[in-house]
Design a protein around this nucleic acid. Structure first.
Length: 202
DNA sequence: TCTTCGATTGTCT
DNA sequence: GACAATCGAAGAA
């Protein structure tokens, strides 16, 4: 298996981390099964001044993990039924995180298909709450360390996606935040056909 | 304690 | 394209 990303990777400005997470592998150790996918879409949320960030009103019990060390998972519950996965970035005590919005499943497809029963394969993990369902990630992962080799959840080196294939656009679903936050191009997406992504995966 | 609403998804029209 | 589902966090009272 490829190398687990070190804490240094996450201890950088959140927008840089969000961009460089594209192409990395999200790996989930589930009992005897290994589930994995290549990250193809992320969003950055940057500190208390960012009105779209959960930390914009200061530290609360919900967002406390964002104030912790980088390289940890921030998992929260929303809309009464969805879990969303983020990774904490930047220095400790600075609340910033990257939302993982979509992955391309590459390993453990049988288990993933069970978790996403009755749904077409291309729709298994193409949304932030879809991939948590597919990889069986819930609130018990909040605060877990993503830098642990063989941990239950980690992010490892993946494939190299050419710069010109990574598109930056405004973030989704944050209309309440107002400008300039709505227009910040802090959503990153690999603009490639899935076949091209698959071709890069050994 | 009460009210509002969300970093979404799936279904129905 | 519109909207219900569903519940806990956060803010107001």
């Amino acid at each position: 298996m490829s190398r687990t990303l070190s804490r240094d990777f996450y201890e950088r400005p959140v927008v840089d981390v969000a961009r460089s997470l594209i192409g990395k592998r999200l790996v989930r150790n589930l009992h005897d099964d290994l589930l994995a996918g290549v990250i193809i879409e992320t969003e950055a949320y940057d500190g208390e001044q960012d009105r779209a960030c959960h930390a914009h009103r200061g530290k609360t019990r919900r967002n406390a993990v964002m104030y912790g060390p980088p390289g940890c998972a921030y998992v929260y519950f929303t809309y009464g039924l969805h879990w969303l996965l983020n990774c904490v970035t930047g220095a400790e005590d600075y609340p910033a995180a990257v939302l993982i919005r979509a992955i391309q499943p590459i390993h453990g497809l049988e288990v993933i298909s069970q978790n996403r029963a009755g749904i077409a394969q291309e729709l298994w993990c193409n949304g932030p709450a879809k991939l948590t369902r597919a990889l069986a990630i819930d609130g018990t992962f909040n605060g877990c360390d993503l830098c642990q080799q063989n941990g239950i959840l980690q992010i490892t080196e993946g494939i190299t996606i050419p710069d010109d294939k990574i598109q930056a656009t405004p973030r989704i679903g944050i209309g309440y935040a107002g400008e300039p936050w709505i227009s910040k191009p802090w959503r990153f997406e690999a603009k490639m056909q899935l076949a091209e992504v698959n071709a890069l995966i050994e």
